[in-house]
Each structure stands twice: as C-alpha cells, then as structure tokens.
C-alpha cells in the first residue's frame, strides 16, 4: 500500500465521504439542541437557522415545572442502577455455577435458560402485566405502577449469564482447586478470586445492562400508567405524542434523556462498543 506523499484523489474522496457522513450523523443532534433553546414560534419559522435567536432556556424550565421530568429522571436513575446491581450479582453468580461447578440437572437448566434468549419480551408482555397487577394487590410497593414493577422482569438477563460464563470459562480450574485445597469456601473463592478476575466482564455487563435499562421503553410504558413509575423515555414519548407538540419543551426532554448516555459513551467508548457488540464473536480492536 505505498502511496505518494501527495494525497491521491481516491483518498480525498474517501475522507470527504467520511466527513459528510459524520455531519449527517451529528446534524440531527445539533438541530435537536438548537430547537430546545428556541421559542415555540421560532421553531418552524422560515428564517430560523441552527443558532437560536433569541435563545431561551424556557423549554428546560417547562419540562421540570409543567411536566415532572425531574421525577422521571430520578426514576430512570433508580431503575437503571437497581437493574445493573441485580444483574451483576445474579447473572455473575449463576454464570459461575454453570461454568465451574457440577450439580444435577445442570445441562437441562442451562438449556431452559437458552430458550429465554430466543423468545422476544413482547410475548410475555400481557401476562407479565397481569402478574404485576397481582403483586400490587399483595403490597402497594410492588408490581404495577411502582418502580419494582419496572425493575423485576429485568433483574436477571440470560444474555448476561452467557456473557459472564464465557469469562469464567477462561479462568483455569487449577487456581480454584488450589484455593479449595487451602480450605477456602465457594463464597470466598467467588469473592477473592473469581470476581477480581472477571472484572473486565463485569464492566461490559454493567454497561450493556445500564444502556438497555436506561433506553428501555415498551415495558416501562405498559407497567406504569401513572407518573409514579414513568422513566424518561416514557415521559418523553408522551410529550412527543401530543396533538399539538411544544417542540422546544419536547427537544429539551430529548436532550435530558439522551445526554447522560452520550456523556458515558464518550467517557468509556471502548468498553461501550465492546459491551454492545459482545456476541459477534470478534474482538474489537
């Protein structure tokens, strides 16, 4: 691939295409931020361009006062953190058992979990809602219209078990055997040896679960009919579905919903891409 020092037309064209597609990818975001800072009457005004004139924070004020976006934000944070916590704990424990321990019925149970990967969540939507309504009857803090209703069905994700099982499979049995001979119990081994070695896997699992929990929409929409359990995407969708849409308010809501994820992505790009493409069977360079 020897090239002369002068850039060839082919390379110039290539880089031009890449830059143009970058602009096409980023333009909707820029336009969204711009609109969130405009006055409603300026949004579709003929002369209104990318720079809001006059610029106003009214959209952001509105979504925190007229609409309970502060509450949705809190719900999203609680739900996402709880789902990540449960998955790190439960998925990792189960994955360790499936990778390193022998117990009766192991392959049958693993096969059963495999089935859950092939069935889309929508199939269970209606009975799951029914179960949440029943749970709500047992205790007003559980089930439909509560945060626990949003969290519970995602507390264990079989994909996470598979992901972590791959990581555990790479830990040599001899290390575990040596610890057992030294008299360490399974929980000690888990805490002192397995968890530290599986740290990169847990990071990937955390990102993957956090992203899917933060962006999840259909289930939080179905299970929560009131603001008590609505998350940011649900709150935003309700704004964007109104008959007369207040665009600056709606775009302010979109910015608030998207920004935390984009900030985390920019900060932890590599892990992020690894987390989301895990399962493709290729290592990301």
């Amino acid at each position: 691939m020897s090239r002369t020092s002068r850039p060839s037309p082919w390379r110039v064209a290539l880089i031009t295409i890449l830059v143009v597609s970058c602009v096409v990818t980023l333009a909707p975001f820029a336009w969204t931020i711009a609109t969130s800072l405009k006055r409603p009457e300026d949004v579709f005004a003929p002369g209104s361009g990318l720079i809001p004139h006059p610029a106003t924070l009214a959209g952001y004020r509105d979504v925190f006062t007229l609409v309970p976006f502060g509450h949705y934000l809190r719900n999203s944070v609680v739900v996402s953190i709880a789902i990540v916590g449960c998955n790190v704990l439960f998925d990792t424990a189960a994955a360790y058992a499936f990778a390193k321990l022998e117990f009766p019925g192991k392959s049958v149970l693993f096969g059963l979990l495999l089935v859950t990967l092939m069935v889309p969540m929508q199939v269970n939507l209606i009975p799951l809602y029914r179960i949440m309504v029943e749970l709500h009857g047992v205790s007003p803090h559980l089930g439909a219209n509560t945060l626990s209703g949003v969290i519970l069905p995602s507390a264990v994700q079989v994909f996470g078990i598979f992901l972590m099982r791959q990581f555990f499979a790479s830990i040599p049995d001899s290390i575990l055997e040596a610890a057992r001979i030294d008299g360490a119990g399974e929980l000690t081994i888990l805490r002192r040896i397995v968890f530290p070695l599986a740290a990169p896997g847990i990071a990937t699992l955390t990102i993957f679960t956090f992203l899917s929990a933060w962006n999840d929409f259909l289930w939080p929409l179905i299970v929560g009919g009131t603001d008590a359990s609505r998350t940011l995407p649900v709150g935003l969708a309700l704004l964007a579905r109104k008959n007369t849409i207040n665009w600056p308010d709606t775009m302010a809501g979109a910015v608030i919903t998207a920004l935390p994820m984009i900030v985390i992505f920019v900060a932890m790009q590599r892990r992020f891409i690894e987390g989301l493409t895990a399962g493709s069977g290729k290592d990301i360079q």
Binding site: C22, P28, W214, T250, A254
Partner: peptide, 24 residues
C-alpha cells in the same frame, strides 16, 4: 473518531431518535 461518531446514535434511546426525526 469516525467510528465513535457513527456509534453515538446506537447509544441513544429509540424514543429520543424517533422524537428527533419526527421534528426533522
């Protein structure tokens, strides 16, 4: 950098994406 830019929409909630495109 290019790869990261193309990946930003993937990390963005579909509801946000749909809202943005509804406006565009």
């Amino acid at each position: 950098f290019f790869r990261a830019v193309y990946f930003v929409p993937v990390t963005t909630s579909l509801v946000v994406v749909s809202t943005m495109w509804k406006m565009l």
